[in-house]
């Protein structure tokens, strides 16, 4: 589904602040895979996701989604393939627009925006049903502004928006990191439910090692712009936190001391 070859990304090239964020990343994600990604700060997880989404232009390499090379596609054009949820709950929705308006915008992802009315009554009924399934009480607030929602509610809404038009690839960039632990668990459970129901190909960046182990069928660990650990299938299922620490130390030659990488 997603093929990445020799992907290199350098920020501030040619300046004293030059930073190589990704160095020759090779990765192939199959259809229906649910990949979790961990790594310390600056390891390149988010950069990798943003390169796939087209937020950053890349310096070298090749990215193709479902056999289509998207290297030269801008962010908005790639969006037809991608569902995205961001770390910042403010980023995924338009705060001054209503919940149903946000959903209607997402329901037209990858389509031409015409002069037809922005939301139809058929859509409204569908949105209400989908929101009711979240069990957050949003179905009775469809005409409230998205900005009035809590962080968790906004992330749940963004998640629904991401999958309203079934994406070829779902990109989750630490989408529960800004939430309190209880809400984070709830949003994550919803995420997993959506992914299982629609069999969505997913890449999920997380700082929480336990989440990375619990969810998904493949785990990637990044370090200094490279993928240093890649565990799939049965091996992934049997993986424990201690195994992961061992793998990290062997692959990087470093002890894992980054407190941002949660071991809980």
């Amino acid at each position: 589904m997603l093929t990445i070859a020799n992907l290199t990304k350098i920020f501030n090239r040619g300046t004293p602040n030059e930073k190589t964020a990704l160095t020759g990343v090779e990765l192939s994600v199959g259809r229906g895979d649910f990949v979790t990604m961990i790594g310390g700060n600056g390891a390149g997880k988010s950069t990798l996701l943003n390169c796939v989404a087209g937020v950053y232009p890349i310096d070298a390499g090749e990215i193709s989604i479902d056999g289509v090379s998207v290297n030269r596609w801008s962010e908005y054009r790639r969006a037809r393939f991608l569902g995205r949820v961001f770390q910042d709950p403010m980023m995924g929705t338009a705060a001054d627009m209503t919940i149903e308006e946000n959903l209607a915008l997402a329901n037209r992802r990858g389509k031409r925006r015409t002069l037809r009315w922005g939301i139809t009554s058929g859509e409204r009924a569908r949105y209400c049903k989908m929101l009711a399934a979240l069990d957050l009480g949003l179905e009775s607030r469809v005409t409230s502004k998205a900005g009035l929602l809590s962080g968790g509610q906004r992330q749940a809404l963004t998640l629904v928006m991401a999958i309203l038009q079934t994406p070829k690839l779902l990109l989750l960039d630490e989408h529960t990191a800004a939430l309190d632990p209880k809400t984070a668990e709830k949003v994550l459970a919803l995420t997993d439910e959506f992914i299982q129901t629609d069999n969505l190909t997913t890449m999920m960046v997380t700082h929480n090692m336990r989440h990375a182990l619990t969810y998904g069928n493949r785990l990637l660990m990044m370090y200094e712009g490279r993928v240093i650990v890649d565990v799939k299938g049965e091996d992934k299922r049997r993986l424990k936190v201690d195994d992961l620490l061992g793998l990290f130390e062997r692959a990087s030659g470093q002890r894992l001391e980054n407190d941002r990488m949660l071991l809980s």
Partner: peptide
């Protein structure tokens, strides 16, 4: 006009261009 698909996308662009691009609209 601002109730149509195009108009809604323009309103959203002023509100949150990141979100609009993620929804496949050329801001």
């Amino acid at each position: 006009f601002f109730g149509t698909e195009l108009g809604s996308a323009i309103r959203a662009t002023g509100n949150n261009p990141n979100m609009v691009r993620a929804q496949g609209v050329h801001t």
